[in-house]
Nucleic acid binder design. Structure first.
Lengths: 153, 153
DNA sequence: AATGATAATGATAATCATTTTCAATTATAA
DNA sequence: TTATAATTGAAAATGATTATCATTATCATT
């Protein structure tokens, strides 16, 4: 579940926080490092458990507060699952969709810009003026499929 | 926000509850009547406020419990919005998608069976085996568009 | 219609994730 | 280095949901 940290993305996020008037603190660094480096969706407690290793003394409350700011700056986005609706992932540029592995929670963005006309049509047929659409795919990622195949042998 | 009750659907739900071994009570009747008759997504408190008119003395707790059973029987389904993830709507037959009016919360189902191959492709391109997809459209319904046009005059 | 086993109810208390409060600490500009 | 204002973490508060439990109501059986 550990990921190599993407230094560049992390620095981008810190710059974004700073240029919005927020201060850079150890606590925020730790949360940013976890979120910018993760390919997996994670909830506040999971983020806290990762981040507190990097910044001992970190409080769960600060994780919530930092997530609020990162969400406000559109650096992270909330992910909705059928049960848990309080997980987060690094946001994508512009309007993208998510595909989520139901085994390991890995998530990847993909753009479906070509879907917009189709979505408009689907709405128009029902008398709706479509303003937005929300699409998520669920499945098994490569790594999990291979792991399952190994076990099956 | 009030709707004429669809007697037939309501009876279907009551039959379904009964044939699953659940008893038919006044409290359940009231919740079923509200949910089976509503074209709008609604959360437990909204359901309670409607249902308590039909069954005075109804407790909010019973609304939660009844919703659990209706969800278990796939008669209602949970609706996820960006903020509120605890609203419900009468379920559709089979795999369908929702289009939701962002003004009045009216929701309609539509089938997008023809979308499945597209979804699979989108996933395969990223090394995922797609098992399921979620699609929701957001927009303005006919009624709200006309109401807005009236006001604009 | 009456009975009785037991499912269901509603009031209350408990739980748990999230928010708020607040005094102490820390980042940043001057 | 200093001033100041944002940030922090601990603790308390909040609010939605769930569990408990004595009472009530349903419904198959009589």
């Amino acid at each position: 579940m550990e990921e190599a940290t993407d230094k560049t993305l992390m620095q981008t996020w810190l710059d974004s926080l700073q240029s919005s008037g927020y201060r850079i603190t150890g606590a925020r660094r730790a949360v940013v490092e976890v979120m910018a480096g993760s390919k997996f969706i994670c909830n506040p407690m999971e983020i806290y458990l990762q981040a507190v290793k990097r910044h001992p003394g970190l409080g769960l409350v600060t994780v919530y507060r930092t997530l609020d700011k990162l969400e406000e700056l559109e650096l992270v986005e909330r992910v909705h699952l059928s049960k848990d609706c309080h997980s987060y992932i690094a946001a994508a540029e512009g309007h993208q969709h998510l595909i989520i592995c139901t085994r390991c929670n890995r998530a990847e963005h993909f753009s479906g810009d070509d879907l917009s006309p189709l979505m408009s049509d689907l709405g128009t047929n029902r008398g709706f003026t479509v303003e937005d659409h929300w699409l998520q795919l669920f499945g098994i990622c490569d790594a999990c499929r291979q792991a399952a195949a190994e076990e099956g042998k």
